[in-house]
């Protein structure tokens, strides 16, 4: 049995410091959203649920939250499909331009979001495809910036993937798609789910693109928070942040749970 690893005290100190830096902003947002004061300040001036209630009753924030939720969910599904397909192709092909293709796929996360948003907007307007200021146009933008994350995580899982497992399934009579679905997909499922979480979180918090591609009458949460902070600076934005944090945590827990469930199902079948 392996002994538990022992770390130098400096590593512990560094880890705790990093954890604090990561968690403190979250704590500040939560406390600012629970303030009894009139402005978004820290430390809070007393504790109250009034801004949480204001968020739930808001004609701006709640629809924006739900819109972001729907947009991020659809984005996540599409990005997972495209990202996984691209990863499988790019890790297995001998095509000379594969590296270039991977680079092109990664471009949207290298470009500043504002530049990409404006470029897409101009492209939509010039091509006159009806995508400018439409939900479809916004969705395409979100898929563009989230797909690279799925591509990266799934590619990492596929690099060390033992192709003989797939070949064994084929030799036992499975078709290529069946072998992919029953063997490959199950093995790379954790990577896909990690990519899905990234895609969801990035889409949910996407601001830059939405500034140009945002649809009339439909405002996403980051933009609604920006407007609120710009003109009113009231803590409803922080209360919205509490719900956003809760959603991200819930999605991570749910995904982790689903992945484990998948493994459980796989193990059960194997025992049969």
């Amino acid at each position: 049995m392996n002994e538990p690893a022992r770390f130098h005290w400096a590593v512990w100190l560094g880890s705790i410091a990093a954890l604090l830096v990561l968690l403190l902003p979250v704590v500040i947002v939560v406390l600012a959203g629970l303030t009894a004061g009139e402005y978004l300040t820290f430390p809070p001036q007393g504790l109250s649920l009034k801004w949480v209630i204001a968020f739930l009753q808001s004609a701006t924030f709640l629809p924006a939250y739900l819109f972001s939720l729907v947009l991020a969910t659809i984005t996540m599904v599409i990005a997972c499909i495209i990202g996984t397909m691209a990863a499988v192709y790019l890790t297995r092909t001998r095509f000379w331009g594969a590296k270039l293709m991977r680079g092109i796929f990664m471009t949207p996360i290298i470009l500043p979001g504002l530049v990409l948003g404006l470029a897409l907007y101009v492209f939509y307007v010039m091509t006159d495809l009806g995508l400018a200021r439409s939900f479809a146009g916004l969705l395409i933008g979100h898929v563009l910036v989230t797909t690279p994350f799925v591509l990266a995580t799934v590619s990492a899982a596929l690099v060390g993937f033992d192709r003989s497992l797939e070949e064994a399934a084929r030799s036992l009579g499975a078709g290529p798609l069946q072998a992919f679905r029953l063997v490959t997909l199950r093995i790379i499922a954790p990577a896909i789910s990690a990519g899905a979480i990234f895609a969801f979180i990035i889409s949910f918090g996407q601001f830059d693109l939405s500034l140009y591609l945002g649809t009339p009458n439909l405002t996403n949460l980051p933009y609604a928070m920006y407007i609120s902070l710009r003109y009113k600076f009231e803590p409803t934005a922080a209360a919205a942040g509490i719900f956003a944090i809760a959603l991200v945590v819930a999605s991570m827990l749910l995904t982790a749970r689903l992945v484990n469930l998948g493994k459980l199902v796989a193990n059960t079948r194997l025992r049969w």
Binding site: L118, Y121, V122, V125, M126, A132, S210
Partner: peptide
């Protein structure tokens, strides 16, 4: 009414040109 609150307007106007205002 289609309400667009995605300020700034200038880049949106200039992207489409005068004859295709957003």
């Amino acid at each position: 009414i289609s309400w667009d609150s995605g300020f700034p307007w200038f880049p949106k106007f200039s992207a489409g040109g005068p004859k295709a205002p957003f």
